[in-house]
Design a protein around this nucleic acid. Structure first.
Lengths: 97, 97
DNA sequence: TAGATAATTAAGCGAATGTCTAAATTAAAA
DNA sequence: TTTTAATTTAGACATTCGCTTAATTATCTA
């Protein structure tokens, strides 16, 4: 729990997550998006992985990262308490008979 | 944005938010829930207020705090990208004709 | 096998964070 | 008005965080 909130606390890590919405990317491709050393990005990826917000897949000498549902579900569950409290608008549906 | 994620990063602050689901409480009532000095809690309340996750209402010599929809909506919007990506289950409905 | 490439691990450092005690502010009560 | 109570502000200090460079591990290719 703590790990997940810590993971999304950092702006770079949130950007990494956003970037991965485009689909799986290897560490080098991710690092190239940021004006930051590769070891730093590697560290961020490690924290995101620990939080189960991303998954790592070794493909030869590359490591491919993608979003992991597991961690997001936990955050979602936490947030539910408050969205219920405020009754956030549900998606609208159309019914045809 | 940054302020909001920082706010929910701390476990004590998340507990304060949970506690306020029960309804508005003044600073002393909140502080009494935690094994921590009042100034520390006061500081946490300040950060939550800056993040617009809570609102402060002065009532005489007391200050009443309650959850603030504003900040939660912003977090909700951020999260939407990912819940869409994973297609989290929508609430089920029953239709009778 | 030797060299190059992808990525991580290690070590070090300044900045930010969370906590405390003490002091200050504000409002109620005696 | 003096005192008490609720709360915040200020200052200090240890811990955590994010970054960098240097070294290490693992894999591919010539």
């Amino acid at each position: 729990m703590d790990t997940k909130f810590k993971a999304i606390n950092d702006p770079t890590r949130r950007e990494i997550l956003q970037f991965l919405v485009n689909g799986p990317q290897n560490a080098g491709q991710i690092a190239s998006q940021f004006d930051m050393s590769k070891p730093s990005i590697s560290h961020h990826l490690d924290l995101l992985k620990q939080a189960k917000l991303i998954q790592a897949d070794k493909k030869g000498q590359f490591i491919e990262y993608k979003l992991d549902k597991t961690g997001f579900e936990v955050i979602h569950a936490w947030f539910k308490t408050f969205s219920t409290y405020f009754e956030f608008p549900k998606p609208k549906i159309r019914i045809e008979i």
